[in-house]
Design a protein around this nucleic acid. Sequence first.
DNA 1: ATTCTCATTGAAATATTATTCAATAAAATT
DNA 2: AATTTTATTGAATAATATTTCAATGAGAAT
Lengths: 195, 195
Amino acid sequence: MSIRHEQKEQRRALILQTALDLFIRKGYGETKVADIAKAADMSMGLLFHYFGSKEKLYEELIRIGCERLKIDFDVMNESSLAIFTAVAEEIFSMISTNPSAAKMFVLMENAQHLDSLSEDLKEMLTEADKLIKKSIPLIEKGQLLGEFKQGNAEALAVAFWCSIQGIAQYIALHPETPCPDTMWVISILENRKAD
Amino acid sequence: MSIRHEQKEQRRALILQTALDLFIRKGYGETKVADIAKAADMSMGLLFHYFGSKEKLYEELIRIGCERLKIDFDVMNESSLAIFTAVAEEIFSMISTNPSAAKMFVLMENAQHLDSLSEDLKEMLTEADKLIKKSIPLIEKGQLLGEFKQGNAEALAVAFWCSIQGIAQYIALHPETPCPDTMWVISILENRKAD
DNA sequence: ATTCTCATTGAAATATTATTCAATAAAATT
DNA sequence: AATTTTATTGAATAATATTTCAATGAGAAT
């Protein structure tokens, strides 16, 4: 009861990894179970042995993603700038260190716009969308303090988070690419004077 | 030979628009012809009457996108900063004015990672990926002149273009959102000192 | 008014995909 | 070594999706 158990875990991991890669490359619908099986070099039957269905496999990935990608900046008594810097730093470090973290990032984003998902899964996912909303008051605070650029706070939040999202997506699909510097994205928010 | 011709064009346009919206929301594979037909309030048969197949419909959209979204910054004798500003300005103006332009942006991005496409279509699409590559020398020039931040030029290019991509994607999916200011994205590139 | 053309539909035919299952092989347990 | 369990496969089946088509109706042409 050792070799088996170990191989079982490896199989599961292999399937999850393979599926994640295909899902973010081609999308859920265009990724056929046959594709995953082929890429993971096993029969389709085995895939169904491990995960009951294509959808369950997908949901398992989302569940894992939700656990790993908990981004929060609720507390902290620091300046807005410091908070956003810390969060961005953490995200960039994740995606540049661990290729599958970047992929997870993309998966979660894509999953949001998928109808056929169980309700509890959908709830978990809306978290991400709330990131923008939750940033707004913090940004407004930063604007008052003069740390941040003036302008519509929601638009600033969109610019900041979508930039991160866009970059994460690129890194996920092109892992060999040099990762941008966190501070470059912070520049979007920062109120700075010309050189 | 007037009412008919006009309605024909309207139908085509309606189908294209509906499909574009669904394709970028759910992805090509998850968008069923039945979905498009239903959203456009017509029978599936009619859809096939206008466009021979789901794939042809998709390709038609890409073709349209390629025409409309010709982004170039080859010539111009201006500073790198001025060039990037002009390009970004143009893109932001497009996506904030015309909702379907933003959607096209997303479609083109997604299409790149789609295997099942005719070769000539794929070629058209690789253009976009070349944007980053083509930016590198311009960025290096800007760095030499002190206009741009120091650091890996490719990474800077990725940060800039992916931010735009990410923002365009968000605007496409949430058209009511206030559009970020072009200069915020330019801040990513710009070499500025703290306030 | 009659004929012609073509837009439109719904249902039937195909094609593709997901899923199940009986059979086999290989590891664990006795 | 015999038995039990379970990982694995490939082929069969079920479920979905795409595509075709014959029939209908509504403008255009005569």
